[in-house]
Design a protein around this nucleic acid. Structure first.
Lengths: 130, 130
DNA sequence: GATCCAGCTTACCTTTTGGTCAGTACCTTA
DNA sequence: TAAGGTACTGACCAAAAGGTAAGCTGGATC
């Protein structure tokens, strides 16, 4: 019933299985696995959306956090911001190709979390779980 | 050059594309996408490991954080802790089946981050990137 | 003339996260 | 007798994340 010794392919540059502290991938990982980053990316995987759409979809996000998250993702080349110089302003957000490739990995993760959440958190009554 | 309108399958219970604030999946997502949670899970995807192995692999983690992360993952039924009553103590950590299924989704994510990190962070000289 | 809209920015403050260091248990080795 | 090794726990404090609320733009509507 034990997992096999080397069952999972980890075809990385992490030669000896060590994740180095200063590795750039740490930074990127922090961005894309951030609380709101995941939700924004997955929301955008359904197609172009406006600021107000994103606010509604990532329920509970503050304007500050949405702005910050979008700025980070845009700087990382994952999200494209398209502003139209009209009044009132109209800004559309969409995934870049890179962001799109990433979302293909994130969507299953979110789906998994959704599917397993009940079962995972179900029997944690004794210790106040959080 | 735009992404297609609905290119990604989001086959979830998120009926209208909204991620509800109180949804249990939020909690689970927070656990499994936490800074150290990801690294520990991916490290364990290579097989059973000891406390000191994990400390070495997730370079930079403090003992406090390792303990906390392992406790959360164990409570979530993702990691199994096997203690042998010997002196000095010997404790092995491994993935459960559920943790194993999850790691199959996380490994590609970490691999992607590793592969794309340079390119993503490369040209961010102007703004102090952080 | 005031209000409203969308899409933000800024200042301020709280909550959470995480680091450091000390201590513990028990046996083994020097 | 003293130091070391493993796997932790707890106290204390600093840093970072994140929330709240206000303001700003400039034309359109009341």
């Amino acid at each position: 019933m034990q997992a096999a010794p080397h069952p999972s392919p980890l075809p990385l540059g992490f030669a000896d299985g060590v994740f180095p502290a200063g590795c750039p991938s740490r930074t990127v990982l922090d961005h894309i696995t951030s609380k709101w980053g995941v939700l924004v990316l997955v929301a955008l995987s359904e197609g172009e959306q406006r600021w107000s759409d994103l606010r509604r979809r990532a329920e509970g996000i503050s304007e500050k956090m949405l702005a910050q998250t979008l700025k980070t993702l845009e700087r990382d080349g994952l999200v494209r911001r398209t502003a139209q110089p009209v009044i009132p302003p109209r800004v559309d957000y969409s995934l870049t190709e890179r962001g799109y490739a990433l979302s293909a990995l994130l969507v299953p993760l979110v789906a998994w979390a959704f599917d397993n959440a009940e079962e995972i958190l179900g029997g944690q009554g004794s210790t106040p779980a959080k």
